[in-house]
Each structure stands twice: as C-alpha cells, then as structure tokens.
C-alpha cells in the first residue's frame, strides 16, 4: 500500500497544504518509510479489544445552558490578519 506522488497530492489537498511538485517524490518516500515502520502494529492481536479514545474513565460532564464569559467581538477580531467594519475579511467566495 505504498504512497505515490498522486496520493501525497491528494492528502495535501485534504489537509489544505500547498505542496511543490518537486517536493512530492521526497515526501512520498518519507511517508512510506514511516508507514512501513507503523505496519508492525499488525502483529498485535486486537480481536475484541475496544478502541481506546480516552484514558480517563468518565462520562463527559454537562453544564447548565447559560452564557459564560465569552470573548467580545473586538477580542476575537484583534488577532485577525485583516478585518473591516467588525468582520473578518476573506477572499471572495461566491461569484
């Protein structure tokens, strides 16, 4: 199940990371190296084992549905690269 250049391009697209064509070959090689090393997990018998998503044996707590100390609009906009009139500015997304 080797990763080829097309697969790298596809994953990078899913991850929204631009990749230069010239870098694809090297990246495929590195990813293949790591995945080949990971393959050893197939040696482990995990039949009937529940996947472990958390080490804490607890049910997620719920809180009362009340407003708490939310950040203000100005707080939220303060770190944005570009804002206008109290909004984030993004490139045009509709034609």
């Amino acid at each position: 199940m080797a990763i080829d250049k097309a697969t790298v391009l596809r994953i990078a697209g899913l991850a929204h990371i631009e990749v230069e064509e010239s870098a694809l070959e090297g990246m495929a090689e590195e990813l293949n190296g790591i995945l080949a090393w990971i393959e050893q997990l197939n040696e482990v018998d995990t039949d009937g084992v529940e996947p472990m998503s958390s080490v804490v044996d607890m049910t997620l707590p719920q809180r009362d549905d009340e407003a708490n100390d939310v950040a203000t609009r100005d707080d939220l906009l303060a770190n944005a690269p570009e804002t206008e009139g109290g909004f984030f500015v993004v490139p045009k997304v509709v034609e």
Binding site: T7, I11, L35, P51, M52
Partner: peptide
C-alpha cells in the same frame, strides 16, 4: 509531515486499518 500522516491515517479507506488499530493497541 505529521499533519499529512494524520490526514492519511484518518482518510476514508485507511481509518480502520491505521487509526482504529492504533487505538486498540493503545488499549
């Protein structure tokens, strides 16, 4: 590189073979 690996092991068709398998070994 780690984002790409993470994206790959969570992507359709590989989720069970990698991510769920790893969570089982973690157990």
């Amino acid at each position: 590189q780690r984002i790409l690996i993470g994206t790959y092991v969570l992507s359709a068709g590989y989720y069970d073979a990698y991510y769920l398998k790893a969570q089982r070994v973690r157990a």
